[in-house]
Nucleic acid binder design. Structure first.
Lengths: 133, 133
DNA sequence: TCAGTAATGATAATAGTTATCATATAAATG
DNA sequence: CATTTATATGATAACTATTATCATTACTGA
């Protein structure tokens, strides 16, 4: 019989654990490097697959930011992000959500607006120190 | 002698013209299809190259939104965008800029914040009608 | 223990973009 | 207007990030 219980494999467990432990929001390959320290035989495909799965299950979040690579967040609460325009690093911003900002829109080409996302841009500590990232 | 004048080729002219004429913000390949109607021998590489060049010259803007493909905007003024979460279409939002919103940030992991970008999400007219995009 | 289902690792395939290079074209100069 | 020189173009290869495939492995429930 089919169970509706989430199947937590050791890979999933370590992936979520490392994602939650990350100070900034990692790309799949950054996380892969971390996970590999604990599970040396893990595959990059497993990391991609499970980041997707964790997002679907609501245990993690795929964050849509600019830049070529996707980034992931172990914190599922709604919040804003800041991205370094030099190295692409993404971190959390502590700021109250702008509730009702959707109501301020005068015109939006007929779109039905249901949410918003703010991405602050700037320089991360490493890049503003002039040191390599 | 080297001139500092911008070299406007027919390709660049048509690319910028079509970009400005677009109601929504096209991806490179969408724009390529449009440009091809006027310049049938144009190469996709030329479209990519010139969208990059136009952005560098300040004649167009590369808009950093979620989704796999980059999108471009012929309107270089600072404004917000709305993206259809179903088909990825991106359009302008008419809303006053949130001046000084960067000052409201309590904490941002040591980043030096210099700007922000808002991406509203929702459904475009075509997708909310249930029709195919 | 066993059967059935789902996850894994290795790798191929794909999508989007950028790089390469021989040829063509535009602007400056004579 | 012809020539020169730098730059842009078209065709295509290469590259990067991600997703799909598939044989094997490992859970889970009976």
């Amino acid at each position: 019989m089919k169970s509706d219980k989430l199947r937590i494999t050791s890979q999933r467990d370590v992936i979520l654990d490392e994602l939650r432990a990350a100070k900034v929001h990692p790309t799949a390959d950054e996380l892969y490097e971390q996970v590999r320290r604990r599970l040396p035989r893990v595959s990059l495909a497993t990391v991609y697959r499970n980041l997707e799965w964790l997002s679907e299950q609501g245990l993690a979040r795929k964050i849509e930011v600019g830049g070529r690579q996707k980034r992931f967040d172990g914190d599922i609460s709604d919040h804003y992000h800041v991205r370094c325009h030099k190295c692409g690093r993404v971190a959390d911003v502590e700021m109250d959500l702008l509730d009702g900002v959707e109501d301020r829109i005068a015109q939006c080409c007929g779109f039905t607006v249901t949410g918003h996302r703010i991405e602050f841009t700037g320089l991360c500590p490493a890049c503003s120190n002039g040191s390599a990232c």
